[in-house]
Amino acid sequence: MNSAHTPRAVEAESLHGRPLRYFDFVMAAFVTILLLSNVLGAGKVAVVDLPGIGDWPFGAGILFFPVGYVLGDVLTEVYGYARARRCIWAGFAALIFMAFMAWVVVALPPAADWTGQASYEAVFGQVPRIVFASIVAFWAGEFTNSYVMAKMKVWTGGKHLWTRTIGSTVAGQGVDSLIFYPLAFLGAAGWTNDLVLKVLITQWVLKVSWEAILTPVTYAVVGFLKRREGLDVYDRKTDFTPFKASV
């Protein structure tokens, strides 16, 4: 397919199982960022010095986790809901396996002369409640994000991409936060109801703001992929059930 061609509007169902040039790369990037943001970012509380406010703590994962939502937007916008759904299930399975692997490796008895067990547990040891909340929130939030993105594309006739990327993130991150923070922290030691609500709203606002800031990047990536694939996919007749992974 000539990359110079203008993207051709097609119905998502007409693609069926047709291979696409860059889909596998975007899927790999989506799953990679999802896993790394959970492994490297979730466990660290960082701090930023805000003018007039002072030190403000935040979860380090917020720097990169929203990039996964950007890629989710790209997947739905360029390849359609069905392929985005396939990626969400791949990410869901990867998260479960990562949690299982971390549990097994941490639980293995350390060698007598190895002194790193405590540090290893501090980094990779996971609270089951938080892991469960994270996986459920990811699944529900990403499917909400993809569904809203696909529906808004049809409603807007493919125009005003920024309304879809931000609108879908408001919905998707809203569902993610509404599930994760109460499931993970409500009633936990040191977490009052007011604190859970404050963190929930703060993280939601920050994630949506980060998505808005990345809008030019989303435009560039979407434009590049549409030109390369030569397609502009619409989900007018798509079966939006989340409970399958076929394309």
Rank of each mutant, 00 (worst) to 15 (best):
S146M: 07
W114K: 00
R86V: 04
D176S: 05
I130M: 13
R86W: 02
Y120Q: 08
D113F: 07
A84T: 04
G158I: 14
A90T: 13
R164I: 04
F143C: 08
K151N: 07
A189S: 14
V123C: 00
Y81C: 02
S177R: 01
L183W: 07
I179V: 14
A111I: 00
L178M: 13
T165R: 02
F185V: 01
N145K: 04
F143I: 06
V170Y: 07
A112K: 12
M98A: 14
A99N: 10
G158R: 13
G174C: 11
Y120N: 11
V74D: 02
G116A: 06
V175T: 02
R85H: 06
A102H: 12
A150S: 12
E77W: 03
A188M: 13
F132W: 11
G158W: 15
L183Q: 03
A93W: 11
W89R: 05
F124K: 03
H160Y: 14
R85I: 04
G174P: 06
V74I: 14
V127T: 15
M152Q: 12
Y81E: 00
F97T: 04
F92C: 08
G125Q: 06
A140E: 06
Y81A: 04
G80C: 00
R164T: 06
L75V: 01
A122W: 09
G190P: 00
